[in-house]
Design a protein around this nucleic acid. Sequence first.
DNA 1: CTATATGCAAATAGTTTGCCTGTTA
DNA 2: TAACAGGCAAACTATTTGCATATAG
Lengths: 142, 142
Amino acid sequence: MSPKTNEQSLNERLAARGFRSTSQREHVYRVLMQERNHPTAEQVFMRAKKGMPDISMATVYNCLDTLVKSGLVREVNVDPAAMRYCPNMTDHCHFYCDACGGVFDIDFVLNASCSGMALPKGFKPSAYELSIHGACPKCAKK
Amino acid sequence: MSPKTNEQSLNERLAARGFRSTSQREHVYRVLMQERNHPTAEQVFMRAKKGMPDISMATVYNCLDTLVKSGLVREVNVDPAAMRYCPNMTDHCHFYCDACGGVFDIDFVLNASCSGMALPKGFKPSAYELSIHGACPKCAKK
DNA sequence: CTATATGCAAATAGTTTGCCTGTTA
DNA sequence: TAACAGGCAAACTATTTGCATATAG
C-alpha cells in the first residue's frame, strides 16, 4: 500500500458518505496508520498534536467518528475505560493482555460453522466482535 | 434453582474470596437475578432502591465489583456508553440489537476448533467474549 | 457562497475516591 | 473489637455539545 493509494482511498471513502476531506481528518488517519497499536482517543490526540499543534480534542473525536462511519477505522472496545481505534479493516479479532494492557490483532474469521449454528431464528447479525483476554507471549513467559 | 440454593451459593462464593456477606450485596444480587435483561449500573441502582431505599450508587458499584470478583456476575461490554451486568455464568455470548438497544443471551460455546486454530504461539488465553451486533427478531421484522 | 467542519470551553455521564460511620465475623 | 463495608459528596475521566469562526466544494 503506497501512501498515495491510501490518500485516494481516504478521499473517496469520505466523499462516498458525503463527508468533506479536511487536513485534520487526513492527519488523524495518518496518525492511526503510522503506529498501529490501538490507541485511545487521548493517545491519538497527543500524537496528532505533534504534526498539527492546533488540533483540538473535540476535532479528534469528530475525525475518529467520521473515519469510523466511512469504514476506514474500527472501534475496539476491549478495555471498558476508553474506546480504542484500529485502522485494520480486515476480519480479525483482538487479544487483550491483562498483564501489560497491550492490544494485539489476531487474524481470525468467525466462519459460518462457528458463528451461525447457535444463533436462534430471527436474529439478523451485522457484525461480530471477538475479544480474547489473557497473557501475550512476552508476559506469559514470566 | 430455589432461592435458598442461591443464597447459600452467594454466601459461599463471597466467603471463598474473603468477602463478607452483607444485606446490600445480597440485595443487588437478587435484583440481578430477578430481571435478567443486562441492566446498567444505573438501572441496578434504581431497582435496588425499591426494596432498599437507602442504598447508594457507590455501594451498588462496590457490590457489582464484589459479585464479579466472586464469579457470580459477569461484566458485559457491548455498549460503549455504560457497562452492563449479567448473572448468567454459563458459557454464552451477547447479541446487541442496534435498533432497540436490547441485549440478548445467546447460548454459544467457542470450541477448540473455532477459537484455537488461529491464535499464534505464545498467547495464553484466559477468557473469550463474543459480541454480535445486528437486529433482534422483533426489530428485524420491520 | 453556504453548508460543513474546527476550536474552545463548558457540560454531561459513568465511575471512583476519601472520609467518616455502621456492621459483620 | 478490629477489619471490612456502606453512605455521601466531591473528584475524575471519557466524551459530547453549543457557539462563533474558518474552510471545502
